[in-house]
Structure formats: structure tokens, C-alpha cells
Design a protein around this nucleic acid. Sequence first.
DNA 1: CTGAAAGCGCTAACAT
DNA 2: ATGTTAGCGCTTTCAG
Lengths: 336, 336
Amino acid sequence: MMDSKIATIQDVARVAGVSTATVSRTISKPDVVAKATREAVLSAVAETGYRVNTTASNLRRQRTGTVLVLLPNIANPFFSQILAGLASVLTPAEYSMLIADTQTGPDADQRLTHYLTSGQADGLVVLDGTLSPETLSGPLVPPAVLVCEWMGSTLPSVRVENARGAALAVNHLADLGHRKIGHVTGPPGNVLTETRRDGFCRALADRGLPVHDDWILEGDFTMDSGAAAARAWCHLEDRPTALFLSSDEMAIGCMGALQSRGIRVPEDVSIVGFDNIEIAQHLSPGLTTIRQPRTDIGVRAAEILMDMIASKTKDGQSEIITVHLIPRGSTGPAPE
Amino acid sequence: MMDSKIATIQDVARVAGVSTATVSRTISKPDVVAKATREAVLSAVAETGYRVNTTASNLRRQRTGTVLVLLPNIANPFFSQILAGLASVLTPAEYSMLIADTQTGPDADQRLTHYLTSGQADGLVVLDGTLSPETLSGPLVPPAVLVCEWMGSTLPSVRVENARGAALAVNHLADLGHRKIGHVTGPPGNVLTETRRDGFCRALADRGLPVHDDWILEGDFTMDSGAAAARAWCHLEDRPTALFLSSDEMAIGCMGALQSRGIRVPEDVSIVGFDNIEIAQHLSPGLTTIRQPRTDIGVRAAEILMDMIASKTKDGQSEIITVHLIPRGSTGPAPE
DNA sequence: CTGAAAGCGCTAACAT
DNA sequence: ATGTTAGCGCTTTCAG
């Protein structure tokens, strides 16, 4: 009570008049100790204010109690909801999240390998689609779940129907009468970029619509690149009447830039994004987009990882998360 | 090489032909070992692929290597940049961030006390202005830095010029000729809410402008509450010609809702936000706002905390971060 | 059902 | 400058 030092298991054992082993058992498997002893121990715990020292427990149990989350950029709000989903599963399971930014700062690759091989984590959640899959092989790397598409990787993953999402966007626009549909991609080399673009092109073909290379503009998921795409669109001779952008952030940047130039959305051009970030519904007009349930994504990834850790395997299930079209005011009938 | 088990300090000692103590020294204070031994040890480290086991090191050194970050809601993108700033200092200092959501889930208060008293962290960064200061007193609570205003607390803090920011907004609007200026606040009880509202009222008084209770609307920092404020504004008999909202998110929600109703910004009403979140410049019109350098905030908080931990004190410096007005298209001359 | 004892891997006195 | 030694606080056989 008076002491400012935290109580140890020894203190509890002394107060309860039992051995430290019994205290430990009472806490981790209460049912194997006799009722009377258990009560004595629990009241000693309460009296001393004892809390297990996680560090010591982890050392003894040869685990770290940590899950490493690899993401490209902490400051990107896109990930925060996935993190919330992860946390909602990890925290109750007594794991803490160690968040590592894979892009910020120099020698990212080296830091990464350091993390992976340093035995700092019992498991891995990878949110960065640009990482090379080889990085994640090797005997010292803990069980990992990918939260992104990844060509040729057999690791368990939680993925989103990216191609189908793109097709939903195209079909929605085609249903509105658009025949000239453009696309703004993510950064080259990113798997999301590829799968969404492929889905886009295939859907166009399925609808018998032209795939026009000039109408496929390169972006990088940021608002700035969306604004740049808007400028590029203005300079096109033959302009598409609708644009599908590979992220809401780009769509917002694009829509803002268009509106600033007096181009009306959706009267002059229809806009579809991807993600359904919160702000999409608060813009004017509201942004038509493809909804990804980001919290669910985090939850499922964490659940799969917990299963893998519990069963001491590097293999786990994979899961595809369904996407939906959310129609709003930024899309309308094709002009003319 | 062949073994899938990670090497320990013993393995390195054996390979290098020295004691474990020497290996430990070579790694933590290289200058106290002889050059020859150091080289032998380092090559043994390379050969074995040794990495220090942080858990064991922490246990022995009676520290946790962890800084606990308390925030109201992980999913709120507002905090992600502060986190990035924190991480940029903490990671090189060999501390990892444990992020705890203080609002999500039940018994938040209890979980919090649990965290604080469980000795899980060497330091604390508090981003949640609604926490009760008493929670952070007590002998078992580690050194803490507050990143928010907090009445009557003497803990070290990194704060923003909230009152001055509000005054900047008011003066900007008054300079544009507005005499009827309204305000949308944050949630009641929040310190940001209070200080910004007070700054707002004082600035109005300083300019000889009326403080009209009907023109002070309650929000909660979310876009939804901004949209609600827009609806409330529409129902006012005597409408202010300008609104200062206590967060960009509210300003965005408000502006979107106004525009959807055909009300023009800034011709019919001028809008000023607070934060300068990234999207502010991509809206149409761009959002006039008060810039808070969020990454810097995180950096300074982490630096102060590292100092406190290093010098084993619970007292540290405090710092006020300067804010700036960023004028954009959402503000214009008063109508008439 | 409970206790004794042996470490997990590391660091920091203390010796030499 | 280096080695010896004693734990940090906990969990887990292994006996009883």
C-alpha cells in the first residue's frame, strides 16, 4: 500500500502463504487450484495490488507478446481504421501492436529485415503491398498475414475484391450511359494498382466499351495526384465523361481541382472513387465510391493471425472481403 | 546458419572466445573493450546472426522499452500524423509505442488504470483531453507528457495556441467586414472546446463585435456534427455571415451540407476551420483554417518524454506550438 | 493439489 | 580490459 514499488509474485505468495507457483497457477489456470487457496491468493493479489510483469512472463514463456504491423505510412488515415480493427482483437488477446513504418526514413529495407529477424514479434501483419515477398520468407520470420493482394504469395491473407470493385464502378457508369470512361491508377508496382486497373479494363471489355490508353492516368493514391489527374484530364483532346479513381483520396483531389476550374460534377464529368472513407458522404456532391469495410479487414486479419500463433503454424486461412458500390451525387447520366 | 533457433549471447561468447559480459559490453558500450576483442565479437555476431533479446534485456534493466500513447480513438485520422511524429523520435531511441484507445470499448477507465499501474510502460503520452488529471497522479504512473491543454495540470505538456488560433480566425473574418460571426464548438468538457471558444469570445469582444449565444452551436469535432450545425444555421432567424468551426472535420461537414442546400461558400457564408488537415486545400473552395503542425507536436512530445525518462524525473519542460492562419477560398467579404 | 527448483537471456556490480 | 556471478520476475516441469 505504502510502497511505491510494484508488488511481485513473491510478495503475493508471502501474503497468501503459498508458493509462487501457486500464485502463477491461480492467475493463468484458476481451475487447477483448490477453491480455498484460490481465494486466498486472489485476496492477496488485491491487497498487494499485484500485476504480472509481462516482460518477465514473456521471457520465461519464450514469446514477445507483440504483433508487428508493417505499413507504408503511419500518417495515412486510410490505415487507421484497419489498425482499430486489429487492436480490437489483439488487445483482448494480450498482444500489443508494434507499428513500423516501412517507407518513412532511410534504409527502410534494412530496418525491416532487422525487425523481422530480431525475434521481436510473435506475428506479423503486412499492410504494405510494395514489400517484396522474399523479405517475408526465411525461418526466423514469424507467422504472417498479408492484408493486400500479392502476386504469387501463398501466405494467408485478407484481401478485398479489388477487381470486382473496379467492375462495379464501370458497370455503374456504363448503366448511366457513359461510354468514354477513364481511370486514374495507384502508383506503379503496387498490387492494388494492378488488380484494380485489370478489373477496370476487363469490365470495360465485358461491356463492349473501348479501352483507351490516354484515358488511363497514373496517380499514387494521394489527393495531390488526383488534382494532377484533373489537370491532365483538362488537357485531353477527347475527354472521358467519367473517371474511376483507384482511391477516394485521389477522387477528392480530382473533384476539388475540377470544381475549382468551373467544371461541374456530375454534369460535365462523373467521378467514382474507391474506399468509402468517411468524408466521401460529406462532400458536395457526395462521392460515389466502392466501400471496403476497413475495420472488418483488421479484425479478420488479427483473428487469422491469433489462430496461427495459437496453433504454432505459418499456414492459415485466407479470406476475401466483399465490396459494395455506394452511389452518391458525384455520378450522373452521361452528357448529351 | 543451419539452426532455425536464434543465437543467444552465449553462442556469440563461445564463438568469439570471450565471456558473455564482454559481448554485452561490445554491443552497448563498444569503447570500453579492446579493439581486438571488439572485432572478434563483432565478427562472431555477424557469423551467428545474433540479435539482442529485448525482452531479456528489458527484464534485466528493469524497464519496458515501451511508451504508452493514450488517444481517444485510433480511427481518427487527426492523430495519425502526431503518431508519425512520435514514432520518428521513439523508434531511433529504441522505444516502441503501445497505442491504447481510451474510448472504444467498455470500461475504458478501468482498462486505463490497469495500463497505467501495470508497469507496462516507461512513459506516457496523453492525447486525450477528456481524461481526468487524477488518473495520472499516483506513484506508479510513469513520466507523462500531455499533448493537449489541461486545466490546472502541472504536468509537462506540448500545447497549441488554441486561444490565439481562434483569435486569428475572428480577426481574419472581421477584417473581411464580417460583423455577425458564429462558432461551432467541440464536445462539452473537452479542453480544446473551452479554450477555443474562450479565445473566440474574447477576440469578438476585442473587436467590438457582438457575442450572440444563438450563434454558438455545439458540435463534437466530427463531420456529422458539422453537417448538423449547417442545418441549425439554416434555421436561425438572424444568421451569422461567417462561421468559425473548432475543427476542419466539422468545417468540411458543414460546408458540404451548406453546398448541398444551394448555399454558396463564401458568397453567402464564410467558413473557417481549425487544424489544416490535408484535405483542406483540396476542397472547392479551399478551406480557410488554422494550421497546427501535427508532426512537430509529436516530435516535441517524444523528445520531452525521452529527456524525462533519461533523467528519471516526472518533471519536464512544456512547450507551446505556434499556429498560423491559412487563408483560402472559403472566406470572403461579408455579404451586402 | 501444491511446493521446490531450474532457468528464459541478459546486464551490472564486483573482482581480477 | 575482461571474467565471474548474481539475479530481474516469472512459469513450468518434476516430485511429493
